[in-house]
């Protein structure tokens, strides 16, 4: 029944293995869309790279150059990662229950679960 209503799309943001345009990019001489790339930027030394968006490019070098032009015009970054969208594997929304719910009833994993006397400072 689910199948009838859930349509799958393989583009952008959180793509699956078939993400991006197709598996043999540019096989048609570049007439159709170039492969899709996800862009990650480190905003300053010491911080993680963070997903900022996506773009189309023929290869990694072009993806990095375009990412520089589009996502770092105002010193937003000191390092860029690009990865072709099709290489990103992601969990599916319909698996959210089995994946994340088991953590919901384990409140003893949080420090606030433990009630300590006030004399115990800074723990």
């Amino acid at each position: 029944m689910m199948k009838d209503f859930i349509r799958k799309f393989y583009y952008g943001d959180i793509p699956e293995e078939k993400g991006g345009n197709n598996n043999s990019p540019l096989g048609d001489g570049g007439k159709s869309d170039w492969p899709l790339w996800e862009v990650f930027i480190r905003s300053k030394q010491g911080l993680d790279h963070k997903h900022v968006g996506s773009l189309h490019a023929t290869d990694a070098q072009m993806a990095i150059e375009n990412a520089r032009d589009v996502y770092t015009r105002r010193m937003e970054g000191v390092s860029i990662w690009v990865v072709e969208s099709k290489h990103i594997h992601a969990t599916k929304p319909e698996e959210a229950g089995e994946l994340y719910e088991p953590a919901a009833d384990k409140i003893y994993r949080h420090p606030t679960f433990y009630d300590l006397p006030d004399e115990v400072n800074q723990m």
């Binding site: 349509r7 799309f9 583009y11 952008g12 943001d13 345009n21 159709s32 869309d33 899709l36 968006g53 996506s54 773009l55 189309h56 032009d69 589009v70 015009r73």
Partner: peptide, 23 residues
Amino acid sequence: VQDEAGHGLYLYSACETLGITRE
């Protein structure tokens, strides 16, 4: 003007996540 091109790109990318190709 360069910013506007960038804005176009952000939006086209957002649009693509809905399953329509850039082309």
